[in-house]
Structure formats: C-alpha cells, structure tokens
Design a protein around this nucleic acid. Structure first.
Length: 562
RNA sequence: UGCCGGGUCGUCUAACGGUAGGACUACGCCCUUUGGAGGCGUCUGCAGAGGUUCGAAUCCUCUCCCGGCAGCCA
C-alpha cells in the first residue's frame, strides 16, 4: 500500500475525502455530516452496503455524524416492511445512527412551506396540463421544450390552487406544482421540474394527512438542508440533478449541502437492480429476499457473510466516478479471509463413502485430538471419535487414480486427518459396478502426535466415524448467473442467464459429533471443503441445515481441469 | 447530431509536473497432518495523436470509445 496515500486512520484516500478535506480547510463546513437515504421500497443489497459503509465510514473517520433517513415521498411503492428490514441491515453491518432516525415525511410541513415561499417569489407555478401534455412539451435532449400556457399565473392564483391542492379539492393528476426555471435548458432536469403531485394515497407514516407528495428532486435537497447535512453523497445517475439540487437551496436561501456523486457497485455474475431482484422473488426463481444466492444484505447474512467481511470488501473496492464491474472473487476473498481467522474447524463428509479398517479392533473407539483453528491457538482443541467404520468423501477415492492424485486409491497410502495412515487393500462394488465400500488397513504406529507420526504421505483426507456421525442437510450455492453481466445483453433478458445449478441440496451428509452444539448462524470450516453456516431459517434442534458460504480454494480441481 | 460525466494491468484502485504502485485474479515455486491458509516470485497497464515542459498518467488541443439524461419513480 502506498503510505503517502493513507491517512492517520490507515484508510486509503479517495476523491470524496479530498473534496471534504478541501471544504474543511477552506471553512465551507466546520464538520462532516452525512446521511444514508434509502427509499423503503425494497430490501438493501450489497450496493447499498457500499453506500452505507461510505456514509457512516466517512462520518466515523472525520468524527462527524451520519443520519439514517428514509426517503419516503412515494406512498405508492413504499412500505413499513422495508423500513424494518433496512434498519436491521444497517445495524447488522455495524453502524449506528443513534438518535438520528429521520424520514423525508418528517419534513412534509417544512417542504410545503418552502413551496409556498417559492410560489410567492414567482419561482413556482401550478400547471393544469395533463401529464401527457407535460411530457410532450418537455422537448428532447436536443430540442428545447415549450412553455406551459399556465406558466404565468399570478402568485395569488398559484397559491390559491396550491392550498386547494393540499386540501384535496382535486383528483390525482389534475394539477401539479412546477418550479419555474428554464424550458430551454440543455439539462432536462431544469425544464420546469415537477415539485408536487397529487396522490390520494395512504402513507405508511403520515396516513391520510396529505394528498400531495413532493418529488425526489424537491424533497431530497431540502431534507438534507434541514438536517444540516454537509456532504450529500449519491450515485452517478444524479449528477445531472445537481444543478437542480443547488437551485432549490439557493432560491430558498437555506443551508447548502454539497452533493457528490460516485459510481454504484456492479458485481460480476449478479444483478443489483431492485426491480430485477423483486422479479426473482415474485417469480419464485429464488426463495425470497433472503435466499442465500441473493446479493441482498439479508441474503448474504444467511449465506454466512460477516459484517466485517462486507466492510472490508467495501473498503477494498474503493470509491471513484468511473463505473465498472467488481470481480465477485474479491467478495469471496473478503469472506474467506475473515472466516479463515475465526471459523471453528470441523470434519464433514458431503458425499459419504464407507471405509472399513480391516485390522482395527471391532469395538474400539478412540478419542483423537483435533485442532479447532490452526490460525488461532486460543481456540484450543476438541476430541473426535475414531472407530473401525468411517465415512470419507467420495471424491477422495479413485479406483484408477490420475497423475498427481494424492488421495486414496488401491494399494495407496493416505493420512486420515488427526488419525492414522491407512492403505487401501480392497474395493467392494455394488451390482451396478459403483463403489460400495473401501477396505483399508491402518498402521498403529502412525497415530497423529505419536513418535512415528512424522512419516510422510502425499495426501491427507478428512473422515467421520460412521457410528458417531450426525446426519445433516447441506446446501451448496453457486453463482446465480452464468455470465458476468446478466443485465448487459440488449437482446436477451437477464433471466435467460440464470444458472440452473445455483443450488444443490445434499441430504446425506455426515458430520463429526462436535457439530451438535452448533447454533443458528454459527460458522464453520468443513476441513478441505469450505465455509459453512447453520441456516437460520430451516434448521431445527434435531435437523441441522448448513449453507455453504464459499468453497475453499480447490487446487486439485484446478489441476484436473488442466 | 444537445448537455453532463468517465477512460491507468484481466478486474478494482493509487499517483495531484519528478522511478506507474497496491489488492484481487491467473501462473510458477516454497511450505503444509486442510491440494486450505501462509510466504516468495512472474505476467500484464497510462485509449490515440499532437502540443507545453529539463521532465506529462497528471496541464492544453483534437480524435476515438464508454456511461447517464426526455417518470406526476428514486
């Protein structure tokens, strides 16, 4: 890391911090106050996590504040269900808005009064044109729009109509309040944008109090201003809105936050559009918003991702203005890095193959020592029962081993993790020719930890004692899409790229008895396989269900692929 | 064809007129009772062309490419 580009918190800089440093140095603002402003119309996804980490992270770094504000200006699409999940997700990510939980709807009175001021100044007017007409007279990016015939109503008339609008004297869509700016502006957002529309709708917080609702462009900046926000950070698509954002606060003469735009997160092999995610849920392509294949925060949580890994990921991807595509491998690296340091290790066999040790005493059970986490001595060790009949992974035996295959095969020796070196002496088959069980002999001198245990064998495989094994269900997840950018194809719908093998359910998995103590959400490394967590929804006391968070690097698979 | 914003290794991201660096990925090697982890190393980059300058990724000009903008959505 370039030390010159790292601040005292040891965090790398970015263009937003440079702007903030400059604002602070020049005295434009005395402190930093940001906000995370979700619309409660869907679940948060990892793209939001980037924004949350950015906004709360900046506040933390500059010893400032960050508010949580729900942008609830459109009662038609918003719901409390989403409000609750959003708060849960932000908290889970590790951020705290303390007492500063706000809603744009908290400011409906202020916004109304500001609108009255603008009307009185002659900067806003009531338009009686139907929506089609407004659309048709807006012009195009290359042609100016035309003036509304209602553009020059007197302030008195505008005020009267606005009050009556608020009082519910008009139907939905009948009138609209517009800012009077410039119908010929090359920036479409400045062509007399709509500030208020009529919606006789129930609002999740204000109930029936209002039948007029402010538009985003009008509500957002003024809400920022009222909260004393200094840096209003949003995504690139709002760049063209900044002149309008500035126009409102300048006309009103109120506190002027600085809007800064950054590139939203795009992740390979997934989609981030709320609309498309909703489609996956509605069409039951996935099992709900928290399906572990979803890029939602609740999905990642259920998948086994930790808040730390997501925060590290956010820091690692950086913040910039050019939009790009982050390799999902970076996300996977972040969780493996975290879990490697913290996850309890355990032996689990996903696709069991019976292994009998012919020369091992019939009824003997040994309790062998196994390290809980080689990366963290303080996690100690545990006992694992060993006996004559074991299960090993089907993949760990080959009757005709290819070159460089270090695992078990006829006549070959292998180490049983934490136990003995064994040698394969026989293979029993089913009628159909498939392998039924494998017979081995063990070398009693090679017990793990003993004097002779130092003997070298090429491979070490994991195992579970058959009579002690706990049966579980394990769900293996793979990327939801088969292509890097499922939304990038203009011809084909994103759903045509769904990976039909994104979920594999294994019902006959065997895990060492230690797993009995596992609780919902607990995370483990199944040695040599990957990281797994106890599913928080479908697990019961007697029937544990595991989700594979991410597999371990599989060097052998790579060799075999060529 | 209007306006706004962008183009630095395969992918992200640094450099603020002075040796193009880091991370991920990939590929080697070392190590290993996890073919994990870790360590070491390698590959690959300033969109192009001019200019200013002792010196340009950085400043200027032109060209090319990419993204956004015509909801009473946010």
């Amino acid at each position: 890391m370039n030390t010159e580009n790292v601040n005292e918190n040891n965090l790398p800089s970015n263009f937003i911090k440079e702007i903030i440093d400059d604002d602070l140095a020049k005295g434009r603002y005395a402190k930093v106050h940001t906000r995370f402003p979700p619309e409660p119309n869907g679940y948060l996804h990892i793209g939001h996590a980037k924004s949350i980490c950015l906004n709360f992270g900046l506040a933390r770094e500059y010893k400032g504040l960050c508010n949580l504000r729900f942008d609830d200006t459109n009662p038609a699409t918003e719901d409390v269900e989403y409000v609750d999940s959003i708060m849960e997700d932000v908290r889970w990510l590790g951020f705290d808005w303390e007492t500063r939980l706000f809603y744009a709807s908290d400011y409906f009175d202020n916004l109304y009064n500001y609108a009255v001021q603008l009307i009185k100044k002659g900067m806003a007017y009531i338009d009686s044109q139907p929506s089609d007409e407004i659309k048709n007279t807006r012009g195009t990016p290359t042609e100016a729009g035309t003036l509304s015939p209602y553009r020059n109503r007197s302030a008195e008339e505008n005020l009267d109509l606005f009050v009556r609008m608020k009082n519910g004297e008009f139907k939905d869509g009948e009138l609209v309040l517009r800012a009077k700016i410039d119908m010929a502006s090359p920036n479409m957002n400045m062509r007399d944008p709509i500030m208020y529309r009529i919606r006789h709708a129930h609002h999740h917080r204000t109930g029936e109090k209002w039948c007029i609702y402010p538009m985003y462009d009008y509500a957002h900046g003024q809400s920022d201003s009222l909260e004393g926000i200094t840096h209003s950070i949003c995504t690139l698509e709002f760049e063209n809105h900044r002149p309008l954002y500035n126009w409102f606060v300048e006309q009103l003469g109120i506190h002027h936050p600085r809007q800064i735009e950054f590139a939203r997160l795009n992740l390979s092999y997934t989609i981030m559009s709320k609309r498309k995610l909703l489609q996956l849920v509605n069409e039951k392509i996935v099992n709900g918003w928290d399906d572990p294949r979803m890029p939602t925060i609740c999905g990642l949580r259920r998948r086994g991702y930790t808040p730390e890994s997501l925060r590290n990921f956010s820091e690692r991807i950086g913040v910039a203005k050019r939009d790009g595509m982050i390799d999902v491998a970076l996300l996977e690296f972040s969780i493996k890095e975290d879990l490697n340091k913290r996850a309890q290790r355990v032996m689990a066999v996903l696709n069991p193959l019976k292994l009998v040790i012919d020369n091992y005493p019939e009824n003997l059970v040994e309790e062998l020592d196994a390290v809980n986490n080689p990366e963290d001595e303080t996690m100690g060790s545990r006992k694992v029962p060993f006996s004559k009949e074991l299960y090993i992974e089907h993949d760990d035996f080959r009757e005709n081993p290819p070159k460089k295959y270090f695992r078990l095969s006829p006549g070959n020796e292998v180490r049983l993790r934490y136990a003995y070196i064994i040698k394969c002496v026989d293979v029993i088959k089913n009628d159909d020719g498939s392998i039924k069980e494998v017979h081995c002999t063990y070398d009693p001198e090679t017990k793990s930890g003993s004097a002779q245990s130092g003997r070298k064998v090429k491979g070490t495989i994991h195992w579970v004692s058959a009579q002690h094994a706990i049966d579980t269900e394990v769900r293996l997840y793979d990327r939801l899409f088969t292509v890097e950018d499922p939304s990038g194809d203009k011809e084909k719908d994103f759903k045509s790229f769904i990976n039909s093998e994104s979920l594999t359910v294994l019902n006959n998995c065997k895990i060492e008895p230690f797993i009995k103590s596992a609780k919902c959400g607990n995370k483990f490394q199944f040695e040599r396989l990957g990281y797994f967590c106890v599913d928080s929804k479908d697990s019961t006391e007697n029937n544990l269900v595991f989700n594979r968070t991410v597999p371990l690097r599989d060097t052998w698979a790579k060799i075999e692929r060529g």
